[in-house]
Structure formats: C-alpha cells, structure tokens
Amino acid sequence: MKNKLIAIVSFCFIHMSLFGATDHYDNIGKIYAVVAVVAITLLGIAAFLFYLERRINSLEKQLEDE
C-alpha cells in the first residue's frame, strides 16, 4: 500500500516535470477529490487487513491455549 502511494506521488512529480504546464494540479480541476477517493479506498482495505490480522492473532492464541 505504502509503495503504491510512493509510486503515485513520484509519478505525479515526473509527470509534472515532463509535461510542464497543464492544469492537472490546480484545484480548479478538483484533483484532490480523486486523491481523497483513492486514499479512502486504500485506507479502507488496509483497515480490513488489520481486522484479518486480529483474527489470526486470536487463532494463534487459541492454538497456544490447547
């Protein structure tokens, strides 16, 4: 997840330097709404992965208890 974010950010910078003057990153175009949507999606999936980890932890505990 983290790698993905780093990839996006770096590609954005490469894009800005290559293509120069586009209005891509003015907020007139509401690009931050897209960033927010991607962030929500990734954070939501990450939250679910943490939930899975918790379930695995409890399984490990059950095995230890036996």
């Binding site: 993905k4 996006i8 891509h24 897209v34």
Partner: peptide, 19 residues
C-alpha cells in the same frame, strides 16, 4: 493491474475544455 490503474488514472491528462 491496480498499479497500472493508479498510475494511468492519475497521469493521463484531461482534454482541454472551456471553464
């Protein structure tokens, strides 16, 4: 595929248009 979607989804520019 998701990496492709994220990268292409962000760097492909919008066509010009009248504001």
């Amino acid at each position: 595929i998701m990496l492709y979607v994220l990268i292409a989804g962000f760097i492909v520019p919008l066509k010009p248009g009248v504001l």
